[in-house]
Design a protein around this nucleic acid. Sequence first.
DNA 1: CTGTTAACCTGAGTGC
DNA 2: TGCACTCAGGTTAACA
Length: 273
Amino acid sequence: MPELPEVETIRRGLLPHLVGRRIEALTVRNPQLRWPIEPDLAGHVVGRRILALDRRGKYLLLALEGGDRLLLHLGMSGRLRVFPAGAPAPGPHDHVDWRLEGGLCLRLNDPRRFGAVLRWAAAAPGHALIDHLGPEPFDPAFTGDYLYARSRGRRCAVKAFLMDGETVVGCGNIYAAEALFRAGLRPGRAAGSVSRPAYHRLVESVHAVLSAAITQGGTTLRDFAGAHGEAGYFQQDLYVYGREGQRCRVCATPIRSRRIGQRASGYCPRCQR
DNA sequence: CTGTTAACCTGAGTGC
DNA sequence: TGCACTCAGGTTAACA
């Protein structure tokens, strides 16, 4: 479900409701996510105030009083919503509730349970899931020169290279495909064969696609929703993702798709080389 | 080191 | 209706 624009949409929606509020109770109905939720998570978070809500890649980071952080990931199907006092009764896949001051309820729903709720202890210098991540796409370090240098000698597909979190964070299957379209690059091209100018175009395309998607509140294909349940609208702006067989919106050539690393990868055979 | 594949899990959609 | 099958926004672990 969520790539960087969706996670950022959720972060912005949650921000005014969470920051500064104390966690009064934690209910874990099913701890079996990607990794099990630690048995005594409540003992570590209840009574603590939420000091900040940040994002690193597709992870949300809740900074708590006392220095611990909660690391939340939504996997493929996770949703986070905040309800005012009197939240609806929990339904299927409502695995975790945080009850906050004022009766607010932050609820994690995740049918496929690929998501995660992990504690990053104050004393730990880093976290294994965060430490090796590449730059944020809007970090000044994410440049065409960086991609060019990093890709030399690499034979993997440029799309897989772009989706690798150690290259850059936040580009999942939708936005990698869309950025490659805008840069005129075929997803199956060997990363090491892409020129420096093309990587400069790709960085600009990643910026353009991600910022447009954030502005639109993300992409709602089936079930993505923001912190209050609202849909995103970027799906109207997709050029290749999920458009196999339809005509290219630039040149009218039928969009094709092939599988790259287990993922469907749409492209225009005329616009992308 | 690089690259590919299977695995985690549920639900929706399709075709017979 | 029912069954079998494929596919889905992510990421890691286990391989060659």
